[in-house]
Design a protein around this nucleic acid. Sequence first.
DNA 1: GTTAGCATGTAAGGAGTTACATGATTTT
DNA 2: AAAATCATGTAACTCCTTACATGCTAAC
Lengths: 212, 212
Amino acid sequence: MSTSSLELAVLGLLKEGPMHGYELKKRLSFTLGPLYAVSYGSLYPCLGRLRQSSLVQERVGEPKPRRRRKAADKTADGMTGRVVPRRRKVYEITTSGESFFFEQLELGAVYDTDRFQTRFAFFRYMPKEMRLRLLEHRKAYLEEKLGEFKESLRATQERMDAYSRSLIDHGVETTEQDIRWLEGLIDQERAAATGRTPPSDTSVRRRRSPGR
Amino acid sequence: MSTSSLELAVLGLLKEGPMHGYELKKRLSFTLGPLYAVSYGSLYPCLGRLRQSSLVQERVGEPKPRRRRKAADKTADGMTGRVVPRRRKVYEITTSGESFFFEQLELGAVYDTDRFQTRFAFFRYMPKEMRLRLLEHRKAYLEEKLGEFKESLRATQERMDAYSRSLIDHGVETTEQDIRWLEGLIDQERAAATGRTPPSDTSVRRRRSPGR
DNA sequence: GTTAGCATGTAAGGAGTTACATGATTTT
DNA sequence: AAAATCATGTAACTCCTTACATGCTAAC
């Protein structure tokens, strides 16, 4: 049974606390970067699958009551003056969900940008050596691709129009920027492993990073 | 009937000359950048669809004969000492394929990186105003996304671990780099439109460009 | 003579999207 | 009272991938 990036990301977010679907969607876009977006048509079925596998649980609990309500409302909860909004399901990760999350996290996904980034977003749950291994494998992969590409560029250079040329130049530069980001992360990881400068808030921040 | 990026790219490549599937796959990866790859399981069915819609034609023509053959070979073509390789289909774009290509090219695809890049790779087939319009819409879209994102970043800043922070920082930087690339392209397009400096080989090259 | 590359395809399935359907609550 | 946003879901469809199946040719 393999896991999509979405399922992993959902489990990862739920590890930080119970949430309902609507909130989850917003947090997903935010956690995975400016261009990442999930649709409800993808998210809700995903939550359904996770629930069926008992990796998450559904709750009606603590649904953040609204202030006022109309009189004779069918969803009234008695005489408190509060309304419990109907159909608001809060999801919570289960114990087996947590262990499943860690299992999947270990399956290094280096050849796919989405999968790599999803793992990276939850790096804090990995041991140092695992982080280093992943970063270095990803870097090696990008360097290999880049090598192949520059090679085949040299062969076809002349007969190419300016626009497609610009497109691939930009692709190459973006990939190089990704590699530099990874190098910075590797350096910091090593520095943190060897002695001083633990991976504090400021040490990992402010370095270049990969795009979708 | 809407067209996938793949279909459009195949038509665009075939406009430059007939090709068979295997070659097409290599050229696709090359034209669309280092990280773009298509599988045969995607490409051959795509060619089948295009043929069924009469947008491309299949030919057995000019199959680049190989040098020698074994005696008593079942694919022998008589007594020429040459072998015509079996099962090698050359595809050619049709006239209706060409007009369809132009129709689809006009449907600006600004909200999707893949679709935008596919259009961009065939910019030379567009009139100047269309190019400018596309570039500016794409830029505006990325700027809007970036604005929303930085906004929501300010709100959640503190309680975020260093790794996911680094991830989104990198995403932001990559997007900003994409915007700069677009700005460079817009400038050059305008310069070419106003007077001097036509879009020659050297003027569009050497500017920053968007990543997958 | 075996490995690598050329060449074409199919079947099953994965992972998502859009459009639709519904309705409550909050803000303007 | 209208518009925005919160909230959940389904059905149909798109587009692609992996794994399999097949066989030829070139190079080592």
